[in-house]
């Protein structure tokens, strides 16, 4: 079946199988920043924005995305660059496998709640697991990033 998705503001048409998930379709089509982690929505690594809201692409059937807008980190390069600087300055990046999904989620937090406090940051990002950092440096980075944007 064919689906039409607007990815990072470009209209794309993909041929997909009814059983395929968005994650597989994106990776197959060279959007390699979207990565596979746990395969059951438990880790957050495969997050993309669907109509500006974070969703786990590993569990969103590609056909359900038909007609919608998808944003991957390639679509928010400037913002990701900024977030990356804050992460770098706090030593909040380690293996980095989850970082593009983290950038997308932080960006969407900024859209929804630009003044989020630490507890709200934690609640918003709790679905984005990290096995490397122990989280503390990430929260510092995100707090500073949000603080400097408003």
């Amino acid at each position: 079946m064919k689906i039409k998705i607007t990815i990072n503001e470009k209209d794309k048409i993909f041929e997909v199988e009814p059983s395929e998930y968005l994650l597989d379709v994106l990776r197959r089509n060279n959007y390699t920043s979207v990565r596979r982690g746990c395969d059951n929505t438990s880790c957050g690594v495969c997050t993309v924005l669907l109509d500006d809201k974070p969703v786990p692409s590993c569990s969103l059937l590609a056909l359900k995305a038909n007609g919608h807008r998808i944003t991957t980190v390639e679509g928010i390069q400037e913002e990701a660059h900024k977030i990356g600087l804050y992460f770098g300055n706090e030593g909040a990046d380690q293996c980095g496998y989850c970082n593009p999904s983290m950038a997308l989620t932080v960006y969407s937090l900024k859209l929804e709640n630009p003044k989020a406090n630490e507890q709200e940051i934690k609640e918003y990002l709790v679905g984005n697991l990290c096995r490397c950092t122990g989280y503390v440096a990430q929260h510092e980075a995100i707090k500073k990033y949000l603080g400097d944007q408003s």
């Binding site: 957050g44 969703v55 786990p56 969103l60």
Partner: peptide, 12 residues
Amino acid sequence: ISQIMGVSIRNL
């Protein structure tokens, strides 16, 4: 609801 998984799964 706010205590179920993360925001992304609650969007789905």
